[in-house]
Design a binder for these strands. Structure first.
Length: 593
RNA sequence: GGCCCCAUCGUCUAGCCUGGUCUAGGACGUCAGGUUCUCAUCCUGAAAACAGGGGUUCGAAUCCCCUUGGGGUCACCA
């Protein structure tokens, strides 16, 4: 029997799950499923300063949300958007722990082994010394590689110093003595990649704080966890020779490697959460330069730069509590890329920041199955002109041979189109349920304003126009304000209410009055009944329904854009519809420009 | 800069391995029409690519080389 296929996804818990990480996890999962193996989740938390348990939980939550569940790894339970309760993780093969920070004893065993066989050695340079050497090399336009200074110390003395350092608890690192020959990496996607002798330096495998470094910990864990296939992004390709060298020194088998193309921004740059800061900063700067839009304009219509700057700074200070003006200035000037600041600014000025992490897409109201589908297309294709598929399809069809080699740019417009299609294909009931689920988490105003039966109507009203769930709040904005607080758009009023009409054709205002007068005849406020009523009124007024819809739209929502007017009326219900009509008709003379 | 990877419409890609069936297919976007009470949909149609140069071959998007371009990576991060 062939060994069980084991793939792994090994994030470091230093933030949210990146969209690229989601693709890696998805492919690892799909490959394991396809081969009836196990997908394992390992938490690489050896960087004590940056790792956090909250991040680990967040990453697992995002994976569960996407439907990428691990067979082995930390135990995790969650509710999925479709209402299913799911469980992931476990330790069927008795691995012990999936958190690297808890595996130090294992790493140390192999560190000692490497030292014994002469492939590991202590080095005593300080980070500052190394940094200076590196800088000096760069200044001379030379490539810096560790000069093996510690190796030139006589062996006796070297170990004596190490023991002394252990006793006195002075810091030192352990380095791996790289092989003298070329290293060949056999990659399932890229083929054979050769790294010439001497290219690989004696890299550090254990830090002064006693924690292992990435390349070493990975090799030990991949071996002790029985990983058979390593699927990861191409940015790791240059780590592979180091890992292979380590495996060879330790006598470990080398797993199959498959390096996937990178996912990039539309401009070809790396997709990074710093892009959020860049976007927020650009919006602020544009405004200060006099090209601002939207929410900024409302803030300070003044044309001189000084008062604009003052207004923006005031608003920013207010939006970012606890932040000093200096920090704020640093952010705007680009000296700081603090994401929280960017998000606060975005919220205050209704900017939309680029989605980078899975959580961003979640919040924006994308469907997890669409994210999986779309992301799978970045670097993989089933061929035969198929591009819409489920994760179950992936689990039966995914294969390494169809992974591409070229980097892919992340096209949000296409993603949006995919999501809109998927939402349109949902039944009304499913859409309602999932919108409710999303709103509970990200837009509670929707569920609090529209309890139970009315929420159904809300979902019905916005469904056709929702590309993502967050569109729902925008689409239903007219119903989220009180009857006497929305404002009438003067241009719309002029155009729809006081349009000049041919003799004998009623004006917008007259149609409004006629409709208002007819309301007692409308007994049920559902889409169907309202539509029939509208048809009826149009008939008696001898106009097309369109002629009456637009004045109604202006009267009931204040503007010219809204869901179909019958749905607007149904959602508003009898009281609001009457109140709003009355308000508009009463205000009409004054509204006339 | 050293090392490594890559190269088909604006974008994601099919085709490449196993040269001819490719006047290069699909999708998103764009443009032009049409449907619709606004918007969004929806329908029909169109424009749009083998980076350049050398080979090999009867024949190259497909194989080889060079150039150019893009990307990754060079930590006591992962």
């Amino acid at each position: 029997m062939p060994p069980l296929t084991i793939t792994r996804f090994a994030p470091s818990p230093t933030g949210h799950l990146h969209i690229g990480g989601a693709r890696t996890a998805l492919f690892c999962w799909a490959f394991a499923k396809k081969n009836h193996g196990h997908f394992l989740l390992r938490i690489e938390d050896t960087d004590q300063a940056r790792s956090s348990e909250a991040s680990a939980r967040g990453i697992m939550g995002d994976m569960a949300w996407l439907g990428i569940l691990w067979d082995e790894g930390p135990v995790f339970e969650a509710a999925r958007p479709d209402g299913r309760h799911v469980k992931a993780g476990g330790d069927p093969r008795d691995i012990g722990t999936f958190f690297q920070a808890q595996r130090l004893a294992i790493y140390n065993t192999y560190i000692h082994k490497l030292i014994e066989i002469g492939r590991g050695y202590p080095a005593f340079e300080t980070p500052e010394e190394l940094d200076a050497k590196r800088k000096a090399a760069t200044a001379k336009k030379e490539t810096y590689r560790y000069d093996r200074a510690a190796l030139s110390i006589p062996q006796e003395e070297r170990f004596a110093r190490m023991q002394q350092a252990d006793r006195e608890r002075t810091p030192y690192v352990i380095r791996f003595k790289a092989p003298d020959d070329a290293i060949y990496v056999e990659d399932e996607v890229l083929g054979e990649v050769k790294y010439a002798a001497g290219e690989t330096e004696d890299f550090v495998i254990r830090k002064a704080d006693g924690f292992p470094l990435y390349n070493f910990a990975v090799v030990i864990d991949d071996f002790t966890m029985g990983i058979t296939h390593v699927l990861r992004a191409q940015e790791h390709l240059n780590n592979t020779p180091r890992q292979v060298a380590l495996q060879q020194a330790l006598g470990f088998p080398t797993p199959k490697y498959a390096h996937m193309p990178l996912i990039q921004n539309p401009d070809g740059s790396k997709m990074s959460k710093r892009d959020k800061a860049k976007t927020a900063r650009k919006a602020v700067k544009d405004f200060l330069a006099g090209q601002g839009q939207g929410a900024f304009k409302a803030l300070s219509p003044a044309s001189d730069k000084q008062s604009r700057t003052a207004a923006v700074l005031d608003a920013l200070r207010e939006a970012t509590p606890g932040m000093s003006s200096i920090d704020l200035t640093a952010f705007i000037e680009g000296d700081s890329d603090d994401i929280t600041t960017a998000e606060r600014i975005a919220q205050r000025f209704s900017l939309s920041l680029p989605e980078i992490e899975v959580h961003d897409f979640r919040k924006a109201g994308y469907l997890p199955e669409v994210i999986c589908n779309f992301v799978a297309l970045l670097g993989w294709s089933p061929g035969e002109n198929v591009e819409k598929f489920s994760v179950d399809f992936l689990a039966t069809r995914f294969d390494l041979s169809r992974i591409g080699k070229t980097n892919a740019k992340f096209d949000r417009v296409k993603l949006l189109s995919f999501n809109a299609d998927a939402m349109a294909a949902m039944s009304d009931d499913v859409f309602e349920e999932r919108l409710r689920h999303w709103a509970d988490e990200f837009e509670p105003s929707l569920t609090s304003r529209f309890p139970a039966d009315r929420f159904k109507l809300l979902a019905q009203t916005v469904k056709a126009r929702c590309k993502v769930f967050s569109d729902a709040a925008r689409q239903a904005a007219f119903a989220l304000v009180d009857d006497d607080t929305y404002t009438f758009d003067p241009a719309a009023v002029q155009k729809s209410l006081f349009n000049t009409t041919a003799p004998g054709v009623p004006s917008g205002v007259e149609l409004l009055q006629a409709f208002a007068a007819s309301l007692p005849g409308l007994d049920a406020y559902d889409a169907q009944s309202v539509q029939s009523h509208l048809d009826h009124v149009a008939l008696t007024q001898n106009v097309q329904v369109g002629a009456i819809a637009q004045p109604l739209r202006v009267a009931l929502t204040g503007g010219t854009v809204s869901p179909p007017i019958n749905l607007v009326i149904a959602l508003l219900g009898p009281a609001s519809t009457r109140a709003r009509l009355a308000r508009c008709i009463e205000a009409c003379p004054r509204l006339r420009p």
